[in-house]
Structures are given as structure tokens and as C-alpha cells.
């Protein structure tokens, strides 16, 4: 079957659809604020709820609304910039993400070095609302755009020896203050088994809430594996290699007792530091139960048939 690829210029230019979204959002905010204003006495101005009061059509399949955009972009774990979750927002704002080449190689028939813009244009865009569960016991619901990692894997054609995919983040201590210290074995490295990489849920994400990824969220391109702890979803990817041996991730290298290769969200495998049985959803008041495979059990359990998940954590 021939698949007709749209040329980039046939797709709505990004600035245009972005400005449409911004217009919609702004007008929605203004209308609801005006409606509230009309209903309130003048003294009650400060009680106007902002975005939280606007019904969001963005919900995950379990009915949870997407986390506020300002929280997704304002509260991030990005040790390349800082271990304080509020600081990357400011520290990363001038991070240069263009031009940006991604090297794809290892055990593949079609190795390539490609500009991220070309990569994005090559594959059809998908929009997915996923839960993101951090190993530290907090979570968000994030509306991503990106493309399926599977599409890329099929393009580069891994050889029969390839069992794992190894991802490497950018190494740029001049721009990333956290990389100026050798406390961590930079650059960031993560890995997936090939069948995990080929799974329909696995994305290479390039945007959130209809906008390009912000630097603190992993611009220009990052991994999203929603049934695994957030640290698996490596940011600012520079290299994707297909390999035979299980890659050692940065966190495994630092403490293999705490961070396993699989890192599947699992409320039954306790972490020595944080609760894995419950989580704080950002924007909610109390904690909630953490779900097996972060709620994607039906979709992914077949990947792990016969495996002892307490050993392969």
C-alpha cells in the first residue's frame, strides 16, 4: 500500500494553528472572566478563578483533566539544569534548540543524521493525553504532540541483532549548569527494549498543549513512555542507537538498587525513598492510589509475560 506523505507546506503552518489556539484560549478566558465579573460584586474581583475554572476538554481515558499548562511548564525534573523543580523554567529559557541534529545508528540498515524539523515533518503527528508518574511520587496529565517511535524504528530498519534502543541526551555544560558538576555521569542515557520502543503508546514528543516543547520540558525532542516512571522519558535527545546489550541508564549507573532498567510504574515494588503505592497529582489536594503500569496495564502487560517484576523493576 502506498502511503501518501503530506508535504510540510500542506499542513497548517504552526504559527497559524498556534495563534488560533491562543486566540481561542484567550477569548475563552476573557469571556468566562467577564461572565464572572458580571456576576460578582466589584469587591470580589480577587476571587476570580483563572484557568482552573475553565472546563478543559483535554482529559485522559480515565477521565482526569490535563494538568494546567503553567504547572507542566513550571514544575519539571531536569537535573541538567537544576535539581530544584522550579528552576529549570528560568535556567533553560535561552537554551538553543535549533538547529538540532539527531543521530540514529547502531545495528540498523539505514543509519542517519537528521535535523529534528525534518524528522517531525516526515512522520504523521499524533496527539495523546498521557499520565506522567514521577518516581518521586507525584504525577501529571499531559497533552502531548509527537510521533510514534515505531514509525522511526521501521524506517531505520534495525538488524536482527538489535535487542535494545539506547537514547542519549545532549551534553552541553555551557548551557546546562547542572552538567558542570561530575556528580552525575553525564550525558543522560536511557534505554528501552526494542518491543517497548515499538509499542503503540511510545512517543517521541515534540509539543505540549499544541505548542512546541519548552526547553524545560525537553525541547526539541524527547521520549514519552507513559507506563514507566518519568525518568525513562529522556529529554533533548541527540542520539538513538540500536544495540545488542542492555544499556546502562544514568540513574542505573548512579544507584542500580533504586533505579532499574525497566522502571515500570508498579505500586507493589517499593522504592527506598518515595511511596510507589500512592502519588500526589499536581493540582489536586490529596494523594491518590498509583495504578499498575500507571493505568496502562491492559495495553502493556503482554510485554512482560513470565517476568518477575520485583526482580526486573
Amino acid at each position: 500500500m502506498m502511503v501518501e506523505k503530506k508535504k510540510p507546506d500542506e499542513i497548517t503552518p504552526q504559527e497559524l494553528y498556534q495563534s488560533r489556539r491562543t486566540f481561542l484560549k484567550t477569548s475563552l478566558t476573557i469571556t468566562s472572566a467577564a461572565a464572572l465579573l458580571a456576576a460578582c460584586k466589584p469587591t470580589a474581583v480577587e476571587t476570580i478563578p483563572t484557568a482552573a475554572a475553565i472546563p478543559s476538554e483535554l482529559v485522559d481515558e480515565l477521565g482526569s483533566s490535563a494538568t494546567l499548562e503553567e504547572d507542566i511548564t513550571g514544575f519539571t525534573n531536569y537535573y541538567e539544569f537544576s535539581s530544584n523543580k522550579l528552576k529549570p523554567t528560568e535556567l533553560a529559557q535561552d537554551f538553543i534548540t535549533s538547529p538540532w541534529t539527531v543521530q540514529i545508528g547502531g545495528l540498523v540498515e539505514n543509519p542517519q543524521e537528521i535535523l529534528v524539523e525534518e524528522l517531525i515533518a516526515r512522520y504523521s503527528t499524533v496527539e495523546r493525553v498521557y499520565r506522567m508518574r514521577c518516581v518521586e511520587g507525584w504525577s501529571m496529565v499531559i497533552p502531548w504532540q509527537g510521533f510514534l517511535l515505531k514509525d522511526l524504528v521501521e524506517d531505520v530498519k534495525p538488524t536482527k541483532d538489535a535487542v535494545y534502543v539506547r537514547f542519549e541526551g545532549t551534553f552541553d555544560p555551557e548551557q546546562m549548569p547542572g552538567q558542570q558538576y561530575s556528580t552525575y555521569p553525564w550525558p543522560y542515557v536511557e534505554g528501552l527494549r526494542l518491543d517497548e520502543a515499538m509499542h503503540d503508546l511510545t512517543l517521541l514528543a515534540t509539543g505540549i498543549y499544541g505548542k512546541d516543547l519548552t526547553p524545560q520540558n525537553g525541547a526539541p525532542i524527547r521520549l514519552v513512555v507513559p507506563w514507566k516512571y518519568g525518568f525513562k522519558s529522556i529529554k533533548a535527545i541527540r542520539k538513538i542507537d540500536f544495540v545488542e546489550e542492555m544499556p546502562t541508564s544514568l540513574w542505573m549507573a548512579l544507584s542500580s538498587r533504586e533505579y532499574g532498567f525497566y522502571a515500570n510504574v508498579n505500586p507493589n515494588v517499593p522504592h527506598p525513598r518515595w511511596s510507589q503505592a500512592s502519588e500526589q497529582r499536581i493540582g489536586e489536594s490529596g494523594r491518590r492510589d498509583t495504578l499498575m503500569f500507571n493505568g496502562y496495564e491492559q495495553e502493556v502487560q503482554d510485554l512482560y509475560t513470565g517476568m518477575d517484576l520485583t526482580v526486573n523493576f
Binding site: 517499593p270 527506598p272 503505592a277 490529596g286 494523594r287
Partner: peptide, 19 residues
């Protein structure tokens, strides 16, 4: 503030985290 005194969550934490 964090656990709202929910002992079904808290007790296992004290059991498996010596710190």
C-alpha cells in the same frame, strides 16, 4: 498535609523505609 493521615498508605511506608 502530604498523606492526610491515611494510615493504609502510611503504615506500609514506615514498614519498608527504615529512614
Amino acid at each position: 498535609l502530604d498523606y492526610h493521615l491515611k494510615w493504609n498508605w502510611l503504615l506500609p511506608e514506615f514498614q519498608n523505609k527504615p529512614y
